[in-house]
Amino acid sequence: MAKVLVLYYSSYGHIETLAQAIAEGARQAGATAVIKRVPELVPEHVAQRAQYKLDQPASVATVSELPEYDAVVIGTPTRFGNMASQMKNFLDQCGGLWLEDKLVGKVGSVFTSTGSQHGGQESTILATHTVLLHLGMIVVGLPYSFKGQLRMDAVSGGSPYGASTLADDGSGGDRQPSANELDGARYQGWYVARVATALSVSPVRETQ
């Protein structure tokens, strides 16, 4: 049974909602899925003034626990076409794990959200993939076997790089993840768990 960590950062709850769907999909594939978040860097009074969602029940992860999992699925909102600084700060602390090859052969996957259709969903996921590859992880996306990616009847996030959602309704108002976007997240979680399970049977060869 694969063990999957859904590691996310969410300011307003959109990524948190997708994280729950990712974990649900992983469990449907028979994996154990744990949802955790990275530490907030914004001072509490600033976060309150910006109306951040501060009542998220997920516990805060530590870098040292990452090797305990067969797969790590990272969720981050987009900040100018890249991951949020909270997630980057967390990943920047993985130098010790990199030095000891602790994440080599683990599955890595990414999902995201933006405020608009062309707000950097794909660039954010691809930029995060670069970090995963440096850590020696095996990158898994959202394959086109999830047919929701081909829908043209409604605005929807999702790409072959990973699940995503749009957080703005186009008029500055809040938009929650759609049914299709949540289905994509569940499929990604399921697919990650399946790949991680297969790899756990045939582990990556260590150098001598």
Score class of each variant (00 low, 15 high):
L5S: 08
V6L: 02
H14A: 07
I15L: 07
T17L: 11
E24C: 14
G30M: 09
V34S: 07
I35F: 05
K36S: 10
V38M: 01
E44G: 00
H45A: 15
R49D: 15
A50F: 11
L54M: 14
P57H: 07
V63D: 01
S64M: 12
Y69W: 13
G75Q: 04
T76N: 01
G81A: 02
M87T: 15
G95A: 12
G95L: 11
L99G: 13
D101F: 11
K102D: 10
G105A: 08
V107A: 03
V110D: 02
T114Q: 04
G120A: 03
Q121E: 15
I125D: 00
L133C: 11
L133R: 14
L133Q: 13
H134P: 07
I138Q: 08
V140L: 03
L142H: 05
Y144W: 11
K147R: 11
L150C: 11
D153Q: 08
A154P: 07
V155I: 13
G157M: 02
G162S: 06
G162L: 01
T165D: 02
L166I: 14
A167E: 04
A167P: 00
G170C: 06
S171L: 13
D174C: 12
R175L: 13
S178Y: 04
S178F: 04
E181M: 07
D183C: 06
G184F: 08
G189Y: 08
W190D: 12
Y191T: 06
A193W: 00
R194M: 11
A196T: 02
A198H: 10
V201M: 11
P203I: 07
